[in-house]
Each structure stands twice: as C-alpha cells, then as structure tokens.
C-alpha cells in the first residue's frame, strides 16, 4: 500500500489539518517511509488471534446516577478563545 498526494490531502481533511499544497508530496514520502517499515507486521499470521481490548484484568467501573458535577459555565469560559455570556462562539455554521 502506498500513500499518494491525494491520500494525504484526504487524510489531512479528515484530521482537519491545513496542509499547504507543496507539503503534500514530501509528507506522502515520509508517511510511506513509516508505512513501509510497518509492513513487517504482515509476516505474522494473526488469523485466530483476538484483538486486544484491554491490557489489564479489570472490570469496567460504574458510577451511581447522581448529579455531582456541572454548574461551572463561568469556569469553562475562562479558557474560551471567544464567548458570549456563557455560550462558546464560533464562526457561523451552515446547516
């Protein structure tokens, strides 16, 4: 599998990273370097191997259904790049 310029453009779009046109080609080269190296995993037969879902033997923790958080709108706004009262503000989103 080989990554080309268009693939890099598509992935960058999915990842919401602006990549200048002239950087697409070099990035494709770098990624190919990495993916070629990773290809060695294909040597291993993993047909009957389960994928790892959890590295520790631990049961998922559950919480009780109680309200003990929230009410921090002002606190949240302190780090906000732009806000109006306690709304976060972003450029108009067109539906």
């Amino acid at each position: 599998m080989s990554v080309d310029k268009d693939t890099v453009r598509r992935i960058a779009g999915l990842a919401r990273l602006a990549v200048p046109a002239e950087k697409l080609e070099p990035l494709a080269g770098e990624l190919n370097g990495i993916f070629n190296w990773v290809e060695m995993l294909n040597e291993v037969n993993v047909a009957d191997v389960p994928a790892m879902t959890s590295v520790v033997a631990q049961k998922l923790k559950w919480r009780a259904d109680v309200v003990n958080d929230g009410g921090v709108a002002e606190e949240l706004m302190k780090n906000a790049p732009e806000h109006e009262s306690t709304f976060f503000v972003v450029p108009k989103v067109v539906e």
């Binding site: 599998m1 990554v3 693939t7 890099v8 992935i11 960058a12 999915l14 990842a15 990273l17 990035l27 990624l31 990495i34 990773v38 995993l41 294909n42 291993v44 993993v46 191997v49 389960p50 994928a51 790892m52 879902t53 590295v55």
Partner: peptide, 24 residues
C-alpha cells in the same frame, strides 16, 4: 495523519485491527 490513516475506511483491518492482534 498516521493515526487518521490507519483508522480510515478500508485500512482499519490492515493496520489497526492487525496491530491490536499483534499486541495480544
């Protein structure tokens, strides 16, 4: 970019799923 690629449609099994099996 690497992470987005290995999870993207058509590549998940070849990369991410395989890697998690290797991890096992």
């Amino acid at each position: 970019l690497i992470g987005t690629y290995v999870l993207s449609a058509g590549y998940y099994d070849a990369y991410y799923a395989r890697a998690q099996k290797l991890r096992t």
